[in-house]
Each structure stands twice: as C-alpha cells, then as structure tokens.
Design a protein around this nucleic acid. Structure first.
Length: 565
RNA sequence: CGGGAAGUAGCACAACUUGGUAGUGCGCUACAUUUGGGAUGUAGAGGUUGCAGGUUCAAAUCCUGUCUUCCCGACCA
C-alpha cells in the first residue's frame, strides 16, 4: 500500500482518555478510535492487525480439526432462558425489544446456540465427536470497561465448542484445543502462562486460562519457583504447615484503644500480623456471616462462596452487623453470636490475637479451643512466599490478562437443552461438551503492552500491519522516487506486504510514524541511491545497516524467512 | 454501583480561584525558505466552552440538575 492517498493518520499527543500503554499507542497510531466506553472502531491499520491475529487463530483451529461457523449477535432471549442463564448472566447482557415487544439480547456468549447447532447433527454416537467454532462479536455490559482494548463491551471472540460421547472423548478434544492454543500463542510471540482457573458462570469441571503476562493484568497468577505449578489466585490453595506442638498460653484480654486495623493492633502489641486473626463481616443471603482469616491475609470471595455453596457474598451493612454482638474493628470468634466461618489455616495457629467483641479490646493468646465455629475451609488468598501446594516450593506472583481459556463444560448445557445420542446398545446418553475462548482484541492489546518503546509499538512480524515499509526520503528526487516505486512493485509481486511512505512529509515524520505503528523492517531510500545503496533497519534494533540495491531483495527474503512462524 | 478526577478548535492544554464576551502548542490552508529523526517565518481557516436550567447589566468562570469520559474497588476473553 502507498500511504499518500490512503486512510492514515497518527496523533502526536497522548490520548487523554487512554491511560494504558497499549490503549494509548493503539489510539495514537490511528489503529483504533474510541466510540464510547469500551467501544472502539478498528481503522485500516488496526483491522489489518486484527485480521492477522484472526487468521492465525483460524489456521490453528482448522488444523486441529475444528470447523468454522457464524452465529448471530442478535438472539431471542428464550435461548438463554432454557439454561437459566438470564439470571446468571444478569446485568452483563445487553437486552432489547423488537417492535412487537419481544425480548432479545446481544449475545454475550454462545454455549446455547452452539448446543442447538449440535442438535441438528447429533443423533448417534457415530456423529461424535466434532468441534465447531466462530470468530464473532460478543457483547457484555461490563461494569467498568478499561485499559483500551483489554476490557471492552463489544469484542471479537473466537469461541469453540467440542462435542463428545464421554469424558474420555472430551479429554482428547480438550487436549487438541490446548495444543492449538499453544501454537497460536507461540506464533503470536506472546509472553504467556497457562494457569488453572475457576470454572465460574460457565460451570464444568476443569478450566485453564492463557494469561498474557503484563503489569496491567487484572488477574494474579500464582507461580512456583521450583515446579510448574501455575494457578489463578482465585482458586490457588493456601497450604499451611502444622506447627510443632506449642504450649497454649492463657487467654488474656488487652486494651487496644482506637485500634481498628490489624496493623495498628499488631504494632501496638508488638506482634507479627501473621499472629493475628481478623474478622470480615459479610452478608450471605441476608444473613450475617463472620469470616475469620489470618490478619495479614485477604479473604478470597470466590473460595468462600464455593465453600458455602452460595453465588454471592457482600459486605454486611451496619444494620445487619447490629443483629449480632460483633463490634466493627474488634470482632472476634469468642462468644460471637453469628455464623462463624474460619480459615483452616487458623487450626494451625496458636496464641494469636483477635478482637474481643468489645470496643477497645482484643484478646491475646487465643487458641482454637477457646471458641466454636460453624464451618472451616480454605477461604483466603495465597501470598507470595507461601508454600506451593504441589512441591512445597515458594510461590511468587505475576499479573496477567486472560487472553484465552479452556473449559471442560461436561453435560451442563447438553442436559438442559436435551442434546443426546444413542450409543451402540441403543441407550440414550448426554453429550459431553467443552468450550474454548480466545479474546482476539485482547491479544492485540497484550502484544502491544508487552512490546513497545518510547517510539511506539514493536509488532512481531506475524501480526504487523505490513511486513516491510519503505521510507522515501525525498519525494522530489527522481532517482529515489523511481527506485522506491520499483522496489515496492518488486516486493509486492513476491507476495510481501509492503507499505510505501510516499507522503509529502519530512523524513522525521515518516520515521516517527513507521516506528509508532511498529513495522518490523524498514527500508530507507535516500541520497545514497545514486550509489545503489539503501538502509535497512529492524524496528526492535538500534542500528541500521546499508545494503546495496542488488542484495536488497534477497536480504528482505532472508529476513522474512528467518522470522517466519 | 460506591470513592476520586475531568469535559473549552481535529489532538493536547490555558483562561475559572477574583464573572467583562476565549487563547497557546501541534495539526489544517496559502506562500516563502527548508528537506535523513515529529522544520521555520508570514498570512489565514477553525468555538453554541458537553447539555439544560438558574443567578447577574454581563457566565467558560458562580449555583442546580443532567449526560459523558478516565482512574481506584466487586465481573471476564
């Protein structure tokens, strides 16, 4: 493509309303433009990149034997009611009505439609297994869109669904997808981790997430320094060692005036906060439930809800707290008149400090035998330095953006939607499903987030909008113009994607723009063309080299070959 | 939804505290000089100051409401 008469612009200033590096660079490069919170248009350069990502995804999905389909975005609500997901997905669905007041939604996820599609074909075990997928828009009314393309309300997702006769078959389909995913993310040159994760609203038995490692990641990845344990913090298990027998001291009431936080109390009593227990007063189905965890830890709502078998846990209101004798800031388990859930780690603690349910007082030397509780379980977040549940090594954290996931859905949707088949013995069985998602836009944002410098993005060859750009220094110089255009034609005819910057701009502007949009290889055609010399510079390298026009095409071909994926 | 910040030219900002009829840089147009890392000069074009009310002789500025966007927290590809 030649730039002179094409749709192309860049911004010299940072975008005011894009704080994230990737959001800012994508907007500045003219690849995307914000339309509303979490809604973007993809402009020519951006679409080229997006399409390249989609192409790689498609290639690997097809290679894994999946077949592409396309589902609608506008879907009658009934389809989501069948699985009870109107409730579950709730406010995160965009819903609307047609002229006859019939309710519709903009599809936030497509398990139902894919299951129905499967019903068209599945009658017998002979029809299984198969996997179908699409790359299509999803709509989610996110409470807080943010970070450019990271969390948006309309986005392209690749979602695939596998259909098998049993768990063993699902394992095979699942692993095929996993392999395809590894190929996809390897080809895209993303720095990623695969972590075990919660199955969430999708339901099912196993879920793994592909997480792009970046500082603006919204998920905490728990990794082990000595084995390959990798887990999302939301399900990462806290392992506490049984301490050797400790002499239990006598319970003691101590005055802790105006000290409400654990740090204040621990400092005041000259104790490690690890030796304190704090209370979290929560609302569980409008009942006050008090969770006790080690003072320096955080409550993991995900684990806690699972332990209690509830869908939601919120902070308790003052009114609800008033139904018990709990005193905010001084709540302890001893003689507390409320439902008590304790972290199982507390079972291994001795002579600790906790609230006394009395304004201005804590107990010290508390032991488990001093109080009663209703439920015990693993309800807090792991911390860096904790023990690895697999090998006993040390855990450390990284932040990640979820760019893909794998779910073993099981029979949840098939059962609800009556997706069954007859087996060899004429018995009716329920189909076993898996679902597999990839956030295409998120991949773009993650790559930019991971690969940039002060001049802009540094895109890998696989997804750069163009593989090579030619910067024509002086477009009034006949020699330069002639050669640049000849080179452009020659490379284009070789099937190479070339961008020729033939605009009436000064060289500096052209260099800046080419850097900003991250074209991997730049050929500069300047004065030395009279000596048949041009310059070549790789976006991710500091220095350029001079190459003669005779060697140039081979040089480019070599470069592309070496960086092929 | 709770907490914080902000809406002024295509983009980034100033003027707001202390009301007096809107300015700077970039970008854009024309001309000249430039031409290897976001050129310089001269002359221009471009605004219902988010929107709606109110106070006032007078509102970008003060008040009320409303909408939008960003950042911090609960959701997810």
């Amino acid at each position: 493509m030649k730039l002179k008469h094409s749709y192309f612009y860049t911004l010299r200033n940072d975008a005011k309303d894009e704080e994230s590096i990737s959001g800012n660079l994508l907007v500045r490069s003219g690849m995307i433009k914000k339309v509303g919170a979490g809604i973007y248009m993809y402009l020519p350069m951006g679409l080229r990149v997006l399409d390249k990502i989609k192409k790689i995804v498609k290639e690997e999905m097809d290679k894994a034997g999946a077949e592409e389909v396309l589902m609608p975005s506008l879907i009658p609500s009934d389809y989501y009611e069948a699985c009870g997901r109107i409730e579950l997905l709730g406010k995160s669905m965009f819903s609307l009505y047609d002229r006859f007041d019939k309710p519709f939604v903009l599809g936030p996820t497509h398990e139902e439609l894919f299951t129905i599609a499967a019903k068209n074909v599945v009658k017998s075990y002979k029809d299984l297994p198969f996997t179908i997928y699409q790359q299509a828009p999803k709509f989610r009314d996110e409470p807080r869109p943010r970070y450019g393309l990271i969390r948006v309300r309309e986005f392209i997702m690749k979602d695939a669904y596998s259909f098998d006769r049993d768990e063993a078959g699902l394992d095979i389909s699942y692993n095929k997808m996993k392999k395809a995913y590894n190929n996809i993310f390897d080809r895209l040159k993303i720095d990623y981790k695969i972590v075990k994760a919660d199955t969430g609203v999708m339901g099912g038995s196993l879920s793994e997430e592909y997480q792009a490692v970046t500082d603006i990641g919204e998920d905490v990845l728990v990794l082990c320094d000595s084995c390959n344990y990798a887990s999302n913090i939301e399900i990462s298990e806290v392992v506490s060692r049984k301490s050797e027998a400790v002499e239990e001291k006598k319970l003691e009431l101590v005055s802790t005036p105006n000290m409400k936080t654990i740090e204040e109390v621990a400092n005041y009593l000259k104790e490690d906060s690890k030796n304190t227990v704090k209370a979290l007063l929560m609302n569980v189905n409008d009942e006050l439930v008090v969770f006790f965890i080690r003072g320096d830890r955080e409550l993991n709502l995900n684990k806690a809800s699972k332990l209690l078998g509830v869908s939601e846990i919120n902070f308790a209101s003052d009114e609800l707290i008033a139904t018990s004798n709990a005193v905010a800031g001084y709540t302890g388990p001893i003689d507390l008149k409320a439902k008590i859930v304790i972290d199982r780690e507390i079972l291994n603690m001795h002579n600790f400090i906790c609230g006394a349910n009395k304004e201005g007082y804590h107990y010290r030397n508390v032991n488990v035998s001093d109080f009663t509780y209703d439920v015990v379980g693993d309800i807090s977040n792991v911390q860096e330095g904790d023990i690895c549940p697999v090998c006993g090594g040390k855990l450390y954290f990284k932040k990640g953006i979820e760019i893909g996931n794998l779910f073993k859905l099981g029979t949840k949707y098939a059962e609800k939607l009556d997706l069954t088949y007859l087996d060899e013995n004429n018995n009716q069985n329920v189909v076993v499903m898996g679902s597999y998602g990839i956030g295409v836009g998120r991949i773009l944002a993650s790559i930019v987030e991971q690969n940039n410098d002060e001049n802009g993005m540094i895109l890998p060859l696989a997804i750069a909008p163009f593989q090579v750009c030619i910067v024509l220094i002086d477009n009034k110089d006949e020699n330069q113009v002639t050669y640049a255009n000849k080179l452009y034609d020659e490379l284009t005819n070789l099937g190479i994607e070339v961008l020729l910057d033939d605009r009436d701009e000064r060289p500096g502007v052209k260099f800046k723009d080419m850097d900003l949009i991250g074209i991997p290889l730049r050929i500069t055609v300047g004065k030395k063309i009279v000596d048949n010399i041009v310059e070549i510079k790789e976006r991710n390298k500091k220095d350029f080299i001079e190459v003669t026009t005779f060697d140039l095409v081979d040089y480019v071909k070599d470069y592309l070959k070496q960086n092929k994926n």
